[in-house]
């Protein structure tokens, strides 16, 4: 008989000799559903939810044309952060992380290829060529020039942008040997200001688009988006991972993950992301294996918070022992 009812007997045996009292689990769930519903409705009605409007390349170009043109010039020169990033976007090495014998980023390889000079600058300008003879000429001049000549123009212009100003909506620099670059950048700024670049960076030959890799990489290379994030204390060095825009709680459950970025050796390491991820994988594994790790699994025994959870049980045990003696 016992053999046949193997499983249920386990529980019967487990509680054998233990006083059982009525307990309505389904009623408890129903009350919990009602209580949480009231709480959630009140919070949503009173506090709503965070929704700070997204940044756009259009807004960036309008608010800070010098920063936009500087970023675009860096893209064309292939010297931006994203242009030198490495996998999964290109074959650079600027943002490739590794630790010890682990090079997972390099191993995974290029999966979302992005060609910054062409994708971010030249191709969008090509689409603006019809009806703009000077742009056509400037593009032809630039693409027809030697690599040395191109980088000479771009270097000179990048240096000049450090002291640039905005005059009647255009980025003005001191005179210099920039070739066709100022005209290219002026036209790109115009396209960006009209909102055209936001769309052009999404096109990939298909009608429907859901992949924002290119515009986000481009915006990440500028300082407009990061400026807005800085205002909201969202940046990594400000525990930004657990912060939220506005006065809302954020992903506070990421406190441990974002903590590591604030302390040595992680806060000074160029491989911080990989190191922190590895530490968190280790920490999660420890949490997973708590039941099997001597020491860790004994902490609840040493710090007797359970005396409060089951205080009634321990009180009855003590009273029972007292009665018997």
């Amino acid at each position: 008989m016992r053999l046949q009812r193997k499983r249920p007997v386990d529980r019967e045996r487990y509680y054998r000799g233990v006083r059982m009292v009525p307990y309505d689990l389904v009623k408890e769930l129903a009350i919990a559903l009602g209580a949480t519903a009231i709480l959630v409705v009140v919070l949503a009605a009173a506090l709503s939810s965070p929704d700070v409007p997204s940044d756009t390349i259009q807004r960036w170009a309008q608010d800070d044309p010098v920063d936009f043109v500087t970023a675009a010039t860096n893209e064309l020169a292939g010297s931006s952060t994203s242009a030198q990033y490495g996998p999964p976007y290109n074959n650079g090495s600027g943002s490739v992380q590794s630790w010890w014998v682990l090079h997972p980023q390099a191993w995974a390889g290029v999966h979302q290829p992005v060609d910054q000079p062409n994708d971010f600058v030249l191709a969008p300008l090509q689409s603006a060529v019809p009806g703009d003879a000077s742009l056509r000429t400037a593009l032809a001049t630039f693409t027809g020039a030697s690599g040395d000549r191109q980088s000479g123009w771009l270097d000179n212009y990048t240096k000049a942008l450090g002291k640039a100003s905005v005059k009647s909506g255009e980025v003005a620099t001191a005179e210099g040997d920039y070739g066709p670059v100022p005209l290219l950048m002026s036209r790109l700024l115009g396209v960006a200001r009209s909102g055209g670049l936001d769309g052009l960076l999404l096109t990939n030959g298909n009608f429907y688009q859901t992949d924002y890799t290119k515009p986000l990489l481009f915006m990440g290379d500028g300082s407009h988006l990061s400026g807005l994030a800085q205002d909201q204390k969202l940046t990594g060095n400000l525990w930004g991972m657990m912060n939220e825009t506005g006065r809302y709680p954020g992903q506070s459950w990421l406190w441990l993950y974002t903590l590591w970025y604030q302390i040595a050796p992680f806060n000074a390491s160029s491989n911080a992301d990989l190191l922190v991820v590895l530490v968190m994988v280790g920490a999660t594994t420890l949490l997973l294996l708590v039941p099997f790790i001597p020491g860790l699994r004994d902490i609840p025994r040493w710090i007797p918070i359970h005396r409060l959870i089951w205080r009634r049980y321990y009180a009855e045990q003590a009273a029972g022992r007292g009665a018997r003696t």
């Binding site: 400000l238 657990m242 939220e244 954020g250």
Partner: peptide, 10 residues
């Protein structure tokens, strides 16, 4: 080195 938003702290 600890920086925490008031909503998260609450």
């Amino acid at each position: 080195f600890i920086l925490i938003s008031l909503p998260n702290l609450v």
